[in-house]
Amino acid sequence: MLNGELLYKAPEEESFVDFIKMAYKNLETDYSKFFKMDSLSKLAFLGADVLLKHENVVPEKEENIALVFSNNASSLDTDRKYQKSIEDNANFYPSPAVFVYTLPNICMGEISIKHKLYSENSFFIFENFNPEYLYAYSKGLIEENKAEKVLCGWVNVDEEEYTAFLYLVTKEKTEIPHTIKEINSRF
C-alpha cells in the first residue's frame, strides 16, 4: 500500500519468497543487486523504493534523508540460516555473503547505496512497534539539522511473518501532522 492505495496484493498462502519476487516485478523495480539481498533487505528495500520514488527522490540530488528503522526480530531470519551452516563441524560452510546480512542495519546500507543517501542511520529493536521513540528521535534529527527528512518505520521478517511500515517525516507542513497518534493510526 502507498498512502492508502493498494499497489500489490499477494494471493493467500503465498510464501514470502514468492510474494517479494512478484512485488518486485509488479512495482517495476529494476535493480540487479536486489536478488543478492536477504529477505529483510528485500522487504525494506522495496518499501523504501516505492515511497522514495513517489516523493521524486533521485540519487543526483543527494538529499539528506535519515533512515530510522526498527523491528522485533533483528536479522534473526538470516541468523538462523547462517547458524545452520556452521552448526556441524563435519558440514561447515560459513558464507561471507550470508554472514554480512546477519546485521539488521544492512538493509539501510542497501537503501543508501541505491538512493545515494549519505545520511544518519539507526536501527532499533523493540518488543512491539514503539512510535514514541521513533517520533522523538526523528523529530530531534530534523530540529538539530542532522537531516532534512527522515524515512522512518518498522521492517520485520521472522520466517513467514513479515511487515513493512514506512513513512517520511519532512520539515514542510503536510496534511498529516507528525504526531504519535497519527503514526499509530496508520500502523
Binding site: S74, S75, L103, P104, N105, I106, N121, S122, F123, F124, I125, F126, E127, N130, E132, Y133, A136, Y137, K139, G140, L141, E144
Partner: peptide
C-alpha cells in the same frame, strides 16, 4: 520505560551515546 535496543553494526557503541544525548535533548 522499555529499553531501546540499538543494533547498528560496529558503530553501535558510539551511536548509543549520540542517541542518548538526542533523547535527553528531546526531553524524553
Amino acid at each position: 520505560k522499555e529499553p531501546l535496543v540499538l543494533s547498528n553494526a560496529c558503530v553501535s557503541g558510539v551511536l548509543a551515546t549520540s542517541i542518548a544525548k538526542r533523547l535527553i535533548k528531546q526531553d524524553l
